[in-house]
Design a protein around this nucleic acid. Structure first.
Lengths: 169, 169
DNA sequence: TCCAAACCCTTGGATGTCCTAGTATATTGC
DNA sequence: GCAATATACTAGGACATCCAAGGGTTTGGA
């Protein structure tokens, strides 16, 4: 994006919040803003790695999800629920993946409303390669220490559960 | 988005990673995926609170930034750097804010290339109201405990510094 | 049995983000 | 002083996300 700033803009924002008498929520504001920015950085890294494969993160996530499905196929509404995105986003991703011959739509055997998405051979191969690249270039070089990773998983897991993403655990 | 899932989809993904022999990067993968999903949840909450004000998060961030500027005005490139977004994203936000009469463009006194963005009186008022709403409805109810907030600020701060966002501190 | 309600997917519209390219203005170097 | 380089903003295009609305299919209660 550009040259590093001399100072942390989020720390500055936190100081501004405190200076305006919002000290009680300044820290959560900073934490939330930091999450937003971190997501942006991570997404950019991921997309950079996926670009040579002709994939975006949204499409990769769908390929990866399908590659773990027992039968290699999933109903679109299942994919939407598991990826936690709007059904129209799945429609969009499937349209593009289907055009690239990485997945195929097929009719559900018993429910006429439902459309199944299935990996093609090419799709399965590409998913493997893309996953290897992400593991090597992003997940394997996250920069988070093992303790921090565990802490993030735990804290954000609680947050997501409380937000209604899932029950149990 | 819909009904809660019976199980945490990210924990499932982590198990899938381990089952496929990628155990060494399964945890960072889960942490990164959790950050992506958490950002999505937080963004949705923020946009819900801002909607009554006719603002999106991108536009609010610009208003808030301007409201903290000494003179109430900033060059567009400064805003782009401080918000850590692409210059075209600032152009886009300013276009819409200007149309809503919340900010105004003006020429830089000495540099003909530069455009200054300045808050209007309406813009300043709306920024105050929107900030109060966000403080009350989002930052004040983040769901993160004080210790977790501190940890997030520290860990993500290090990550952002290492990613080249800023130097020092 | 049959029709209304629920469910599934797609289309169209609004936003935001980034990239590439183009225009205008400043600054630098010879 | 003038050309070459650097900087600032904008225009157009590709993607992704969401919401609202529409058309087809299933289900369940009257």
């Amino acid at each position: 994006m550009g040259t590093p700033l001399p100072r942390d803009p989020i720390a500055d924002a936190q100081r501004n919040w405190e200076r305006h008498g919002w000290g009680d929520v300044a820290a959560p504001m900073a934490a939330i803003t930091a999450i937003m920015r971190t997501q942006q950085i991570l997404l950019a890294r991921i997309e950079t790695v996926l670009k040579p494969f002709g994939l975006t993160f949204a499409r990769y996530e769908l390929l990866a999800l399908l590659s773990f499905a027992r039968s290699g196929a999933l109903p679109m509404n299942k994919a939407s629920a598991l990826l936690q995105v709007h059904p129209t986003s799945v429609t969009n991703a499937v349209d593009r993946l289907e055009k690239a011959a990485l997945v195929a739509r097929s009719a559900h055997p018993t429910d006429g409303r439902t459309t199944l998405i299935e990996l093609t051979a090419d799709g399965r191969t590409l998913a493997k390669k893309a996953t290897a690249a992400l593991n090597a270039e992003v997940f394997g070089k996250s920069g988070f220490g093992p303790d921090d990773v565990d802490h993030l998983i735990r804290v954000l897991g609680t947050f997501r559960r409380d937000a209604g993403d899932f029950t149990e655990e």
